[in-house]
Design a protein around this nucleic acid. Structure first.
Lengths: 353, 353
DNA sequence: GTGAAAGCGCTAACAG
DNA sequence: CTGTTAGCGCTTTCAC
């Protein structure tokens, strides 16, 4: 079916070694020979099998990518960024997703390692306390984390703490005092923790009291009564919600709408991720943006640097700048924080906690 | 570093052939031997290298996936569906994106073929007139198209013509008569053509005159004056827009908003793709939905069927059922189609064409 | 039931 | 400059 280096050698009347050299080190072979070999290559439509090369040796030109999911555009965008550089540089990408499951993370890494990938780009649930990463540090392959914001390991991310801090400070600057943080059910991730810490710091710095993050079920159609209750308990009722990611923010916006609460008049919303789609909402979603494509590309470059032997700079965490998109979902708060009407819309009959 | 079958053989005191059999055909080796070999495997944490296997033989357990982009959630969701089954069945995925570029499509397929993938799942710009696909038919590897709706080739999609037909008929049922179709700049794809044909058929069947699809720049902040002009030319002014995909619909909605047109009061919008995110818009986007995860999974199964030697059923096009999401972006039209106020909002001063 | 040996496609010494 | 040779890790006859 497909021809091998042997066929080319026979066709050209040289040894396979010469053919190999003609391909990998053209300058070391006689121009006339080279021409003949190339002719044979064309005639037979020969493409060297990566398999043979990979088996033989050091360079597989294979990079593994391990992501939680592609349902979140954040990761899809990162992957897109990686793929751009990878294909431009002649590398192949092997992709596995984990659904945030530690067991699948382990399986993915083992599979990829068995495939002899030269490097790994991955996003894990929690980078600091991850035995797998210690194993990788110990016996390869080289890796770079993406969106895992840790000082201890090679990674590319934003400064989640600082980003959340900036975002919440912006809410405070708009007059908000009672700000609640909402997180998805996968709140155990390092990112979520850091974002909450940033929120807490901003609150405290303004002399306000941070609250624990409130968990929200991602998949529910409406907001759970317990959550709505939190949004409506008299004097401590929040005027703004900081959502740990944009998808969550959108779900919450829908939930509020169903509960007849207006955004931003009755409740301001700040998301995290800066999904392009958020801008298309009405009102456009305010959000802390992460440069996902850039993160993917930077992760790639760092991985290449490490593979190239750069043990210094490329081995630590890199934080890319985040952005602050002040969309229409944030209202300024004056003296009277809440209207009676809103109060009533908030608690439709029996739901009153 | 990592141990090989040789190490295991030495450690267990048998030949590598026996180790190989212990792994691939346990029943053919003496139970006692088997136990010893397994012990050695565990002791050395041996994982057989796919590379050796791949080189030796037919089965690489590698599947190539070629997609236009991951920026569109449609494809990310398909990939997610594929990955689920692939990893469950012990296959590895090699991913390449093409940005709808024919040259990159060719390069991707060649790279993947060289890697000896056992099969290919791909989405191309235009399936019917694609020389590459003929080459694949001729000398492998086996493939299945995704979202390319063609009878002539193995594929999984929805019936784009029918789906568009249904959607536009629904618009007509809501009283719309002047309906325009909008398409992205990549309008040359087979999908876009089929969707326009479905639109045209629905129009004609209702005694209405279909118009050519109007091209809209995806990336522009506001709608181009030429487009706005089309939406405002006196008596033939449309009351509803059928957008060839959801991303486009969202961009158009934003553009209309900036032009001070209300959706759906002044203009109804129907999208195509059924992106989950569309439901979170305000108002929720009406859309023709494609079951992307299911399409990915079905494509996988069809590919496996073909690889398994099913030359009959699995070789033709499969159309999965589409859905019709009647979101809030569609208004019913009564007697008076357009308000004067809307007319004025539509043409802000100098823009009047 | 087990081992020896060939070979998958390729690269990399080492000779000539 | 070119050919010979020895593997990379594994599977698979073919003997024993």
């Amino acid at each position: 079916m497909t021809s091998t280096i042997k066929d080319v050698a026979a066709h050209a009347g040289f040894s396979i070694a010469t053919v190999s050299r003609a391909i990998n080190a053209p300058h070391t072979v006689n121009p006339v020979t080279l021409a003949k070999v190339r002719e044979a290559i064309d005639a037979l439509k020969f493409r060297p099998s990566p398999l043979g090369r990979q088996l033989r040796g050091e360079r597989t030109r294979l990079i593994g990518v391990v992501l939680p999911t592609l349902a979140n555009p954040v990761f899809a965008e990162c992957l897109q960024g990686i793929d751009e550089l990878a294909s431009a540089q002649g590398f192949r990408l092997m992709l596995m997703t984990t659904q945030y499951d530690a067991q699948r993370e382990r399986h993915a890494i083992e599979t990829l390692r068995a495939q002899r990938v030269e490097g790994l780009i991955l996003t894990v649930a929690d980078a600091d306390t991850h035995p797998l990463l210690d194993e990788l540090d110990a016996d390869g392959p080289l890796y770079v984390l993406m969106h895992n914001d840790t000082k201890r390991r090679p990674s590319v991310s934003v400064d989640n703490h600082r980003a959340a801090f900036d975002g919440v400070r912006m809410l405070i600057a708009h007059g908000h005092r009672r700000i609640l943080m909402l997180a998805g059910t996968l709140a155990a991730s390092d990112r979520a923790r850091q974002r909450h810490a940033g929120y807490a710091q901003a609150m405290e710095q303004a002399g306000l009291t941070p609250a624990p993050a409130l968990e929200v079920d991602f998949n529910a159609e409406a907001l759970a009564p317990s959550v709505l209750a939190h949004l409506s308990t008299g004097p401590t009722r929040p005027t703004a919600l900081f959502c740990s990611n944009d998808l969550l923010a959108m779900v919450v916006m829908r939930g509020l709408r169903r509960a007849h609460l207006r955004v931003p008049q009755d409740m301001s919303i700040l998301g995290f991720d800066g999904l392009a789609m958020g801008e298309l909402l009405a009102p456009p979603l305010a959000s802390i943006g992460t440069p996902n494509g850039e993160i993917g590309r930077a992760a790639w470059q760092r991985l290449m640097a490490r593979i190239g032997g750069d043990y210094a700079g490329a081995s630590l965490g890199l934080a890319l700048p985040h952005t602050l998109r002040e969309g229409g979902t944030i209202a300024a708060i004056g003296g009277a924080p809440f209207s009676e009407a809103a109060d009533q819309r908030l608690m439709p009959g029996p739901m009153r906690a």
